[in-house]
Structure formats: structure tokens, C-alpha cells
């Protein structure tokens, strides 16, 4: 069986490439051509990235809690944390 590729598509210039799905192909070039036929039949993209699925390293969902928790109590990273006088209109 051909290897699995993950497909990323930029919907229009100025936007990020976004993961849209995956497909099997003999090589990266074929993955790009097949991705065009499968994921952009209605002009959904202007650019395609493909990467073999085995090259993706992902964070472990089992550790998601402790892994992302440290950001939870740092509310001072958000602008709403700071009380300023009303006279300061836009900041």
C-alpha cells in the first residue's frame, strides 16, 4: 500500500495552510496531484502542502491536561486583566 500523506491547503493568499484530510499516494508529487483532484475541485485552494503522515509528531492527548494547564492561571497575559481609567479609550 502507498504511504499516507496529510494534506494542507491555503484557501486564498494571505491565509494559513490548513489541514483538510489525508490520502495515499506513491510519492509526494502524486499526493499533490491527487489532493488537487480531491480537495480543490471547487477552487477551494491556491496552494497545497503534503507531508507523509509518519513524519508528524503529535502531543499526547493523555497528557493534554498537565501539558496545557500552565497557561490556565496566567490571566495577566490577556488585555482584559488590566483596569485602566475610562478616559483611555483605545488601548
Amino acid at each position: 500500500m502507498w504511504p499516507l500523506f496529510e494534506i494542507f491547503i491555503r484557501a486564498k493568499n494571505g491565509l494559513d495552510h490548513k489541514h483538510v484530510g489525508s490520502l495515499h499516494a506513491a510519492d509526494a508529487q502524486m499526493a499533490i496531484e491527487n489532493a488537487r483532484d480531491v480537495y480543490t475541485r471547487r477552487l477551494e485552494g491556491v496552494s497545497i502542502w503534503v507531508v507523509e503522515s509518519k513524519h508528524i509528531t503529535a502531543s499526547d492527548p493523555k497528557d493534554a491536561d498537565p501539558f496545557f494547564k500552565p497557561a490556565e492561571d496566567k490571566i495577566y497575559r490577556h488585555p482584559t486583566f488590566y483596569d485602566l481609567p475610562d478616559e483611555v479609550k483605545h488601548m
Partner: peptide, 26 residues
């Protein structure tokens, strides 16, 4: 032809979704 080609795509989206559960396409 365009409709049939869409159906092939639908098959592919779904096989890919299914493969994430640990079965192979083969």
C-alpha cells in the same frame, strides 16, 4: 461525470476517517 467524481472523493474522505481508527485501507 462531475457527480461521480465527487462520489469517489466522498469514498476517499470516509476511508481516510476510518483509517484514523487503526484499520488499514487494504
Amino acid at each position: 461525470l462531475a457527480k461521480i467524481q465527487d462520489e469517489a472523493g466522498h469514498g476517499l474522505y470516509l476511508y481516510s476517517a476510518c483509517e484514523t481508527l487503526g484499520v488499514s485501507r487494504d
